[in-house]
């Protein structure tokens, strides 16, 4: 496919994805807004007001980056897995298969659509946080890089899940049993330094800890780990999942008999 045609195909797929999640905004944009508002009220206002400051900032301000990141991760992952599995289930993925769209465009199209939903959800939660506190912005570049790479990583992960899923139950197994526990134990509500030594070591094996920690650095200027190392690891995982996706799509695994 020539460059112009490839660009049109990519735009078409991204457009389709964006139209989809905007059309069903009550399922895609509203729930994270409500859930994170509840977190702000319960953990930030009711419980947080009883807690001491962390690294000199209020508990409410401390949890803002983590709650944004939590919403971004869930939105990015669930967008692509639901959309792609829906396409498989209704068989309209065949529209893509019979057309000359390069493999990388299919992966990029679905991923960009999910990244856009992730960023939009992140912005919504960020705006909501202003009703409870005034968040700092220490380094916008770091915030942008972490939100972009994290949403991209989970989009690619969701796409792999969508490829292997054979029934609707299969698209919920990973988010419910893996993603949710990792996110809750990912330092959204606490600093790793606050944990006993054993749990600090265990936490270091949770990739979401690094994402939340690095993202929080962008807001407040402090972190438990080296931010650039976290970014580097994140970038490596993005490339790895991108490669796995390419292999699976190219071989037709999960979509072609």
């Amino acid at each position: 496919m020539y460059f112009k045609e490839t660009s049109v195909a990519l735009y078409t797929l991204v457009r389709k994805e964006v139209v989809r999640f905007l059309r069903i905004w009550t399922q895609t944009l509203l729930p994270p807004a409500i859930t994170q508002t509840l977190y702000f009220i319960i953990f930030g206002t009711f419980i947080g007001s009883q807690l001491r400051d962390i690294e000199g900032i209020s508990y409410m301000a401390f949890i803002v980056p983590g709650l944004i990141m939590m919403a971004v991760i869930n939105a990015s992952y669930s967008n692509v897995v639901a959309s792609f599995f829906g396409s498989k289930f209704q068989r309209n993925v065949e529209e893509l298969m019979v057309s000359p769209v390069p493999t990388w465009v299919i992966i990029a199209g679905y991923s960009v659509g999910s990244v856009l939903r992730g960023i939009l959800v992140g912005l919504i939660v960020f705006v909501i946080s202003w009703f409870f506190t005034t968040p700092d912005i220490y380094n916008f570049g770091v915030i942008a890089l972490f939100i972009l790479l994290t949403s991209l990583l989970f989009s690619l992960g969701g796409l792999i899940n969508g490829l292997f899923a054979r029934k609707f139950d299969d698209i919920n197994i990973f988010p419910v049993f893996i993603l949710t526990p990792l996110t809750y134990f990912g330092g959204v509500f606490y600093s790793i330094d606050m944990l006993p030594e054993f749990w600090q070591i265990v936490s270091k094996f949770n990739p979401i800890v690094y994402m939340v920690d690095g993202f929080r650095y962008g807001f407040h200027g402090f972190s438990d780990f080296n931010v650039w190392l976290s970014l580097g690891v994140l970038a490596v995982f993005v490339l790895l999942l991108g490669g796995i996706n390419y292999y699976l799509f190219d071989r037709g695994i999960g979509i072609r008999n």
Binding site: M1, Y2, K4, E5, T6, V8, A9, Y11, T12, L13, R15, K16, E95, L96, S99, P100, V101
Partner: peptide
């Protein structure tokens, strides 16, 4: 959308 997949704006 189908046309778009074939590179038609």
């Amino acid at each position: 959308t189908q046309a778009g997949y074939f590179g038609i704006p």
